Amino acid sequence: MKKLLLLMTVLLINAASYAQIETPVKWSYAAKKLSNNEAVVFLRATIQDGWHIYSQNVGDGGPIKTSFKFTPTKEYTLVGKTSEPTPIKKYEDAFKMNVTYFEKTVTFQQKIKLKAGNVAAIKGQLEYMTCNDKKCLPPEDVDFSIPLGK
């Protein structure tokens, strides 16, 4: 009985060592004050080779597009929509449609109008989905807080 219990424990530990959480995308953030009442925030994804994340402008029926939700506050308002560089456009069999996506790195930008004199940080949440040529990972939500320098 003890040998069976020991064998089961070794098998469970061995199986757990193979289960790794894949995180092919790392996010970083920065902000730059343009004037006393305007700033821009930068949300940068660094993507491992072979993986990609989707544009904010993916059509219906496709993958989960990258999206940004900024926490409402009286300290600032958003100026326009979050901008992105020109994405790669390609037909993907998995979705049976043309999709737009980014590889390696992408920096999204959001202009902010500051209403209060000293805004400490711009906060919110982003959602994205990442895929490679074999699989897609479940969509991920990431909270962010971007310090706004003086």
Rank of each mutant, 00 (worst) to 15 (best):
K3E: 13
L4D: 12
L6F: 15
L6M: 14
V10H: 06
L12H: 11
L12V: 14
Y18R: 09
Y18E: 05
I21A: 00
E22C: 00
K26W: 04
S28G: 09
S28N: 11
Y29R: 01
Y29P: 02
A30G: 12
A30T: 11
A30S: 13
N36Q: 12
N37K: 10
F42Q: 10
A45R: 13
T46L: 00
D49I: 06
S55M: 02
N57E: 07
V58P: 00
G61R: 15
G61T: 14
S67W: 07
K69M: 05
F70Y: 10
F70Q: 06
T71Y: 00
T71G: 01
Y76S: 11
L78Q: 12
L78R: 08
P87H: 01
K90P: 10
F95S: 06
F95G: 01
N98R: 06
Y101F: 13
Y101D: 02
E103Q: 07
T107G: 02
T107A: 03
K111A: 08
I112D: 12
I112L: 11
L114A: 12
G117R: 11
V119A: 07
V119W: 07
A120Y: 10
A121W: 04
I122L: 12
K123D: 15
G124C: 13
G124L: 12
L126I: 15
Y128W: 13
Y128A: 04
M129N: 05
K135T: 14
L137M: 08
E140L: 13
D141Y: 12
F144R: 02
F144D: 07
I146Y: 09
